[in-house]
Design a binder for these strands. Structure first.
Lengths: 219, 219
DNA sequence: AGCTGTGAATATGTTCACAGCG
DNA sequence: CGCTGTGAACATATTCACAGCT
């Protein structure tokens, strides 16, 4: 069933995800095949890059024709591991946790938040669309019961390291971390940080650079 | 006042942001200087990388001693363009928009959401902590009135391109995009995408790779 | 002719290793 | 002696360019 998995860079994987999204946005009745050039345009990269990325996993295209949309979608889902359901444990029922719980695109891709915990006793016991918010003490049991291998941390920086360790101890191997702190975990655990402040700061830097080129220094 | 800005890679800038965060987490009474090694540890990179990154912008350290925490913080804020206030327009008052509006770390760094618009008439007119949600039609006027150069898109993919163009037409030069779609804008506009599904898919891929190495293919 | 798949060429980013200052 | 700053060595990623199938 599953594709062989050669060593491949993180940026390639991220682009595969963009290709999948682009393909899903295509009407495969009207456009049953795409060229690498078209796919590149949709995903914001170059045609050569598209071909290189895809060719690492197989020969999915036809010369002279391009790639068939529906089969390529399936190849990408297979490569990315999306041909299954991924139960996810959410730590933190604040604003961000709530937004993620409601985020429709997660469930579409098979990422299903099956348990929510929060340290605030006032929140514990509430129900979100059938999922009861539980105490952080219940975390180890919950992770094991729902066999979650993925966790999302949407809590303050101060609590994040301890919560991450609890997740890992209970069997989680991949964490999406919204807490603004560097997590230190075993090398078998994969952590992806979402750092919103960093994103804004990168914009700030870019804008500052642009204006200084145009208008000089004088304060 | 401001530091010279040589051409520098995006990954360097992102690490500068991590260094700043790490420095802010230090007690500069107890630890008035840091070595590149220590800073690397805190930020999750290597000592050589820290030195290379910083040396692109100046010689901030003292040989034999390390970097003084408080001055280095200021250098980084200066480089990143954080020695000022950045008014920000938020497009989209849904779950994610709401979470971002409340996000405390933005304001701490000078990113202040000064206007919110939504296309849903039911939301228009509500007040969030003193900021009134306005109609999307008001967007151009709002951007100009508050002189916002930064915008955040927290709306569905279908509306994102049009909203982005409206922002840019009104003077926005940097966009943080949460909509799951590739924006096509003039090259003078900087777009940073936050793609939550992609982050989960990258985890999914990593976990799939790890288990297949350990346990073979069968069913 | 059109478009993929891919080695070779190039560009970019990271690590090494050490000279040189404090 | 410790630690930065940095050129040189290395590793990685992207682009080029074209052979080879359809």
């Amino acid at each position: 069933m599953s594709t062989d998995l050669p060593a491949v860079s993180d940026s390639t994987i991220r682009r595969l995800s963009l290709y999948l999204r682009a393909l899903e946005g295509l009407d495969d009745q009207a456009e049953p095949t795409v060229s690498s050039r078209r796919l590149a345009e949709l995903a914001g990269t170059s045609a050569a890059q598209v071909r290189k990325d895809l060719s690492r996993f197989g020969s999915f295209g036809k010369r002279g024709l391009g790639y068939s949309v529906a089969p390529l979608q399936n190849h990408l889902r297979d490569i990315l591991g999306l041909q299954r359901r991924w139960p996810v444990v959410l730590v933190g029922a604040g604003r961000i946790g709530s937004a993620l719980f409601e985020y429709p695109y997660f469930r579409e891709r098979g990422f299903e938040i099956v348990a929510v915990v929060d340290r605030d006793p006032a929140k514990v016991g509430r129900r979100w669309n059938g999922v009861k918010i539980q105490s952080v003490e219940a975390l180890p049991t919950l992770v094991r019961e729902c066999r979650a291998e993925l966790g999302i941390l949407a809590i303050p920086a101060t609590d994040a390291q301890a919560a991450a360790e609890a997740l890992v101890d209970a069997g989680v191997r991949g964490i999406l971390n919204f807490a603004p702190v560097q997590l230190h975990l075993g090398s078998h655990v994969v952590v992806n940080d979402v750092n919103l402040t960093l994103e804004m700061e990168a914009l700030s830097f870019a804008l500052r650079t642009a204006s200084e080129l145009g208008s000089g220094e004088g304060g």
